[in-house]
């Protein structure tokens, strides 16, 4: 492998990681943008999403690495996996919002955040007690297609994850910018009280944003499973933390910011593993985050909210 090939390969690795972080970061950003809440339960909704996707594919008769599909069956299987995990995760998110967070809506301070930590414990241990903590072999129906680019290798699954991430993100961007509901969301994020007075059903908007955020976590779970062919109960934290960092780096509450942050963190992770060793990846990521925030306190694309005086 030449140095150029190596760099190219690490770029591919980093972009794939970044796509996953971006998707997960979107959930944080959506909820944060609207409620100013760091949602720690998101970590484990993502994990649950991966488990649901795995169980769905297994229920459709796929197991391990043995069944490989192509054409229409492949597309249908993948769509089914995405649909089930996204919808169920969405409802989990709605449930969390409706029953556990709504009563805390007007409470100042970190009470709601603590609730999400509690929910995270509950989700984690429910999965632990029902499915166990061993690594699970996530079904992989994708044909092993490989596109060589010089000495570097691009695999079908990488192309798939980029495309899916891009489609979901563009759709979300379109949704928040141009649809009535999306506009209502942004209005709620700006000023919930004013939005309410202008006829926005704030409760519904918040619930829907929880649904979308959690459904995206479900989609990330499915993508994660397809990409790594693995599901494990403790997978939520490391990926979640980096995704959250990505959301902040890009400017939390900002949809393009979450995408940019995710891709950057993915690239930093891959390139720092090459240059320094993966043991130092987190140190590099967080140092960079501190540095960026010192000079741009609202993140790369975020704008500091004017002091409400």
């Amino acid at each position: 492998m030449t140095a150029v090939d190596l760099f190219l390969q690490q770029l591919i690795n980093g972009l794939s990681l970044g796509a996953m972080y971006s998707l997960l970061a979107l959930g944080f950003t959506l909820v944060y943008g609207i409620m100013e809440l760091i949602n720690f339960s998101h970590f484990n909704v993502f994990m649950v999403g991966c488990m649901i996707a795995m169980l769905t594919l297994q229920a459709m008769g796929l197991s391990g690495q043995t069944v490989i599909l192509s054409g229409a069956p492949l597309v249908l299987t993948l769509l089914a996996g995405f649909a089930v995990s996204m919808v169920l995760c969405g409802f989990i998110g709605v449930g969390i919002e409706r029953f556990l967070l709504r009563p805390l809506r007007n409470v100042k301070g970190p009470a709601a955040m603590i609730t999400t930590i509690g929910v995270s414990y509950v989700l984690f241990n429910l999965v632990l007690l029902t499915l166990g903590s061993d690594s699970k072999n996530f079904p992989n129906p994708l044909p092993p297609v490989v596109f060589p680019i010089g000495g570097a290798v691009l695999r079908l699954r990488e192309v798939l994850i980029w495309i899916t991430a891009a489609v979901l993100m563009l759709a979300l961007n379109y949704f928040t910018r141009y649809t009535k509901l999306g506009k209502a969301m942004r209005a709620t994020a700006q000023d919930a009280e004013a939005a309410r007075m202008m006829g926005v059903e704030v409760d519904r908007v918040i619930m829907i944003s929880f649904f979308i955020g959690s459904a995206l976590a479900g989609a990330s779970g499915m993508i994660f499973g397809l990409y790594y062919n693995l599901a494990k109960v403790d997978m939520g934290f490391a990926a979640g933390l980096r995704a959250f960092t990505a959301a902040v780096l890009g400017g939390i509450g900002n949809v393009p910011g979450a995408m940019l942050g995710g891709v950057l963190i993915g690239l930093i992770e891959a390139l720092s593993a090459q240059a320094l060793g993966s043991a130092w990846s987190d140190v590099v990521i967080f140092s960079l985050l501190v540095l960026v925030l010192v000079f741009r306190p609202a993140g790369l694309l975020g704008r500091l909210a004017p002091n409400k005086s």
């Binding site: 992770e269 390139l271 043991a279």
Partner: peptide
């Protein structure tokens, strides 16, 4: 000699380094 984070999901960067 490299160190993996057991909680991280992705070792492809490190493995690419080994491949090289």
């Amino acid at each position: 000699r490299d160190r993996l984070d057991p909680k991280a999901a992705d070792y492809s960067a490190t493995l690419t380094k080994i491949k090289a």
